[in-house]
């Protein structure tokens, strides 16, 4: 930033970046570019409420569903508006799996290449609702309450017990979950928007639904959306340069050709006049937002000592998968909640 010819536009991707660089960024509140946004879900503010940086694209994750299979099983997507609906459909499909020729959920492997879908993504529902209760997190909390662990358990149990693979066989992985969904062997697949290209090759109508987990008012839940791609404008350059930069940003997100090129690269842009995405899951996310549903932001990104934290959770979930006893779930809770505090303390030790 102290180079002789500093960039006018730069990326501040997370709260740590805001802490480090906020003095170098102008307040974007009420600028032309801010008015182009269709949501403020991806904006980063500092503690004084200054709009330091704004998102220019995002990704989302949730439960990918195959509506055709669900109809084949005699259900409709409309039945799935909350956890009870999801549970009824999934359990019915699983019970009739042999007759239908497909099962509810694809395999939820616990090896390193897959476990993040449960220790990272799925865990987000617990963090998000805690965060929402706390009025939003601006930095990693030193501990969790674990208030929504039951909800995490609801959805997790549903996924592992209504799946192609027995829960006891998940530890070392080796099941190709993506392929199971693509070939129509499973109706649900827990993953993110980056899977759209691969999945839509064969499942044209694939759609993404939120993590319904039995929380009050979850009928208004949206997808888990987030980004680390946020623009900030350098406050140390002339006002004319700042204005030119903002004009350039507005052009990028509103000009049909420019925004089309950007969307092709990035997936989707959270701006009113940007062209529509070709990624069906991101469009699903945008549609939930447009319908007034709340975005579940990526509170998962705060996980302290992320590798250690998740490794412990994997081990606890393995034990639980093998034997779904209360004692084993208590261990999952310990790894999930107490593990957070322990890892927070370790990561922030002097």
């Amino acid at each position: 930033m102290d180079k002789s010819n500093p960039p006018t536009l730069f990326v501040i991707g997370n709260q740590q970046g805001v802490k480090d660089w906020k003095d170098y960024a102008i307040d974007l509140t009420d600028t032309a570019i801010a008015k182009e946004l269709n949501t403020d879900a991806y904006n980063l503010y500092d503690e004084s409420g200054k709009l330091v940086s704004i998102g220019y694209c995002y990704e989302c994750y949730g439960i990918i569903a195959n509506p055709d299979l669900i109809e084949q099983a005699g259900h409709t997507m409309d039945e799935i508006k909350n956890f009870d609906g999801l549970k009824a459909v999934a359990e019915d499909i699983h019970a009739r799996a042999a007759e239908l020729g497909f099962d509810a959920f694809s395999s939820s492997d616990m090896d390193d290449s897959s476990s993040w879908r449960f220790t990272g993504h799925l865990a987000n529902l617990e963090y998000f609702y805690e965060e929402r209760d706390a009025g939003g997190w601006t930095e990693c909390p030193s501990s969790l309450t674990g208030k929504y662990m039951e909800n995490y358990k609801n959805l997790y149990d549903l996924i592992i017990n209504n799946s192609l693979t027995a829960p006891t066989d998940l530890a070392t992985g080796g099941h190709d979950a993506e392929n199971e969904f693509k070939t129509g062997a499973a109706a649900f697949f827990v993953n993110g928007s980056w899977e759209y290209a691969a999945v839509s090759e064969t499942v044209k109508n694939a759609t993404m639904i939120p993590y319904y987990c039995g929380v009050e008012g979850e009928e208004k839940a949206g997808l888990n959306c987030g980004t680390e791609n946020c623009w900030a404008v350098n406050s140390k350059v002339s006002e004319a340069d700042q204005q030119a930069t903002i004009d350039f940003m507005v052009w990028l997100v509103s000009d049909p050709d420019a925004s089309a090129a950007m969307v092709e690269q990035l997936g989707i842009m959270p701006y009113k006049n940007a062209v529509e995405s070709t990624n069906g899951f991101l469009n699903d996310a945008a549609k939930y937002t447009a319908d007034g549903c709340y975005v579940m932001d990526w509170a998962t990104n705060y996980q302290p000592n992320v590798d250690e934290y998740r490794a412990a959770l994997v081990s606890a979930l393995n034990a639980y998968n093998a034997d779904q006893s209360d004692a084993n779930w208590d261990l999952v809770k310990t790894a999930f909640v107490d593990g957070w505090a322990t890892q927070y303390a370790a990561a922030n030790a002097a």
Binding site: A171, E308, A311, A312, V314, S315, A316, N318, A319, L331, T334, A335, V337, D338, G339, W340, A341, T342, Q343
Partner: peptide, 25 residues
């Protein structure tokens, strides 16, 4: 190192972790 023992404070003991791997981790 798997499986782990989850201790009551949420820290873990990796039961099959040997010395060299413990140092690495």
């Amino acid at each position: 190192g798997l499986p782990f023992i989850i201790q009551s404070d949420g820290s873990t003991i990796k039961t099959t972790e040997m010395l060299a791997l413990n140092i690495y981790n």
